[in-house]
Simulated scan of single mutants.
Amino acid sequence: MNIFSGPAEADWSKGEGMLPAVVQDASTLEVLMLGYMTREALEQTISEGKVTFFSRSKNRLWTKGESSGNFLLLKDLYLDCDRDTILIKADPIGPTCHTGNRSCFDTPYNQNFVFELERIIEDRYTNPAEGSYVNKLRNKGLNKIAQKVGEEGVETVIAALAETDEDFINEASDLVFHLSVLLREKGRSWKDVALNLEKRHR
């Protein structure tokens, strides 16, 4: 977990002692909501591990999910370069928005669903479900999982060269899914791939 050196590091002289805090899904990187924090809210967030804001309408500290149960579990905290905006990475328990939407910004789709898919696959590994395709693959072992990635790769190439765009997208989706399972089987993640691509880019 990354936590900057503590509340004293933030510049509380701005915003009358209240700083904006952007909440991002720690797994998918989707922006979930914006709230405001006082020093006390930040201290409580760090000590309890649940994201707590200062509610301007209630004029008190407010832990997200205190009534709904849809908590935001703290994973990481960052300050921006001016030390007057907080970035929170959290694991959401249920929808973040009071409307029932995944994000308060109600984007039309989860732009980083590949990471959400990775989380679903991890859940299938941790909590095996009868009839789950992921578990059927897992039970067949590494060789079969790797073979499926090869098969889907070939089918993606064929679709790109000789089939419709819809067929191509379907096959590419199958390829990404099976590669995600293979990464989990090998104990790796899309984060490892992203870090390696970034390193190559440099």
Rank of each mutant, 00 (worst) to 15 (best):
Y36F: 03
G153H: 04
D106I: 03
Y78N: 06
N127D: 12
I46L: 02
K186P: 01
I145E: 14
D123S: 15
P7I: 06
P108Q: 05
D84F: 02
K89H: 10
V22G: 04
D192I: 04
S189W: 10
K89S: 05
N70F: 03
H201W: 15
K14L: 08
K148M: 14
N70R: 11
G35L: 11
D11W: 14
Q24A: 09
S27K: 08
I121C: 13
L61P: 03
D123E: 15
L32H: 03
L175G: 02
T85R: 01
G65P: 03
R138C: 09
K89D: 02
I145P: 08
V181R: 05
Y78W: 08
E171F: 05
A172M: 11
A8N: 15
R202S: 14
W12R: 14
K144Y: 14
D11N: 15
L32G: 07
G69M: 02
R83N: 07
V193L: 09
H98R: 09
N101D: 06
V193G: 06
N112K: 02
R184D: 01
A41V: 01
N110D: 12
Q44C: 00
M33K: 05
E16C: 04
A194E: 15
D165L: 14
K136N: 14
S67R: 04
A10R: 11
P108M: 03
T126W: 09
Y36T: 01
K140P: 04
F105N: 07
T164Q: 05
S68P: 01
T85W: 00
R102M: 09
I88R: 08
Q111H: 13
T38R: 01
C104N: 07
K136T: 13
R102Q: 05
T85S: 01
P95N: 11
I120G: 07
Q147I: 04
